[in-house]
Write a protein that binds this DNA or RNA. Structure first.
Lengths: 215, 215
DNA sequence: GTGAATGTGTTGTTCAACAATCATGATATG
DNA sequence: CATATCATGATTGTTGAACAACACATTCAC
């Protein structure tokens, strides 16, 4: 068909991932292999490879002989995700080298978020926030932690999709991210880590509350 | 062909994983799709799904248009793995609930290791040691951490396969694992965590030295 | 001998097919 | 009327074959 190397499967996975995170495919929705393959313009075989990928990442749920469904995050999911985030992000800041190249990525992410706030584009604000946290994990220089964290973030965004009012979900943290970055750049890793701890606590509370409200 | 549900791909992945970790497929070895598919008795399509799985886990390396190879761990791999282990295992012990059910799993693993030592079965000693550390991660009650850690452990075992003298690699740690477990069960999480920190430092040193010796 | 053309084998992707399984609704039974 | 049984259709699980794109080795020309 069209020229697409390398990795049509990976590319299709990206596309599908966006559809899932973006809310086009709502949680719980069933994905028919034949129909979706036709829609995406790939073969059923390649689509199955994509399914494996995204199942591994926690975005899809696979029930044998029944099909694959968009995963439905639960409160347990949220709690687990925040536990992992605490475990990774706080030490990442506490042990960071203030002149690590990832600090630049953090700065870019904060600026992106602020720009998106100007235009009231809350979805982009969310993306930028996630990039910020990914940059924090990049401080560790651990390839494995970074890909693991990317998965976690994707799952979290899926959960966010269930919630409305993305403004309340993201806006309060834009400037706090800026603070964290400034503290780190100034060499006070300890304070940056402490602020991050507070951020995670508060964010988790808000998300859980929003979840409870739509039980 | 034969009746095999559910998940012939997953099952084949297990089989291949053992062949890789067990050393039947040595690091760097190239895996031909057609030939391996025939050997394993599955179709090429299914084998490709398996490849995705194991590539994701870090056991295989995929070079576009060239094929898949058994991953060759480097010193950077080791360093990264131990960084992750420190990040996960030490807090897991420090924050553990001494009567968590995973403590029983730790005890079982230690006993398995001691039994295998009697028979000088060092490969089994290695397996039991890994089970011990997996049990430590189970203390966190985090599903995501546990599957992540399982991957890390698989990669580490792949690296161990490159090294000879499995005795020196595993024997010294059997009783230390027992100590860690005893400390935790007795309620001194802090001491258990400290001992684990020392264990990781020493183990990493030994493994890196062995690696350097075969450059 | 160096470089270009060619050949061979492998991967990347698709398609078509079939058995096994599940969902649904119709039929029969109490 | 309610419920259990069964037939039907749709979907998944897996396979095999096909072909283009690509990598590597060899040959050929100069």
């Amino acid at each position: 068909m069209v020229i697409d190397p390398p990795g049509l499967a990976e590319e299709t996975a990206s596309r599908l991932r966006n559809d899932i995170i973006g809310g086009t495919l709502p949680p719980g929705h069933r994905l028919s292999e034949t129909r979706l393959a036709a829609d995406l313009g790939v073969s059923r075989n390649t689509l199955r490879e994509v399914f494996r990928l995204l199942t591994r990442e926690g975005l899809l749920r696979h029930e044998p002989n029944r099909g694959v469904f968009v995963a439905v995050p639960s409160m347990a999911t949220i709690v687990d995700i925040y536990r992992v985030r605490r475990l990774i992000e706080i030490p990442a800041l506490a042990n960071a080298w203030p002149r690590h190249e990832a600090v630049a990525q953090m700065r870019v992410a904060v600026e992106k978020a602020r720009a998106a706030r100007e235009v009231q584009d809350w979805r982009s604000v969310g993306s930028a926030n996630m990039e910020f946290h990914a940059a924090i994990v990049a401080l560790t220089d651990s390839a494995r932690l970074q890909v693991f964290f990317a998965q976690i973030i994707a799952e979290l965004r899926l959960a966010f999709g269930l919630l409305d009012s993305p403004e309340r979900l993201h806006e309060p943290y834009i400037d706090r991210n800026g603070e964290i970055m400034d503290l780190l750049a100034a060499g006070s890793q300890t304070n940056a880590a402490a602020l991050m701890a507070r951020y995670l606590d508060e964010s988790e509370r808000v998300v859980l509350a929003a979840f409870a409200r739509l039980g």
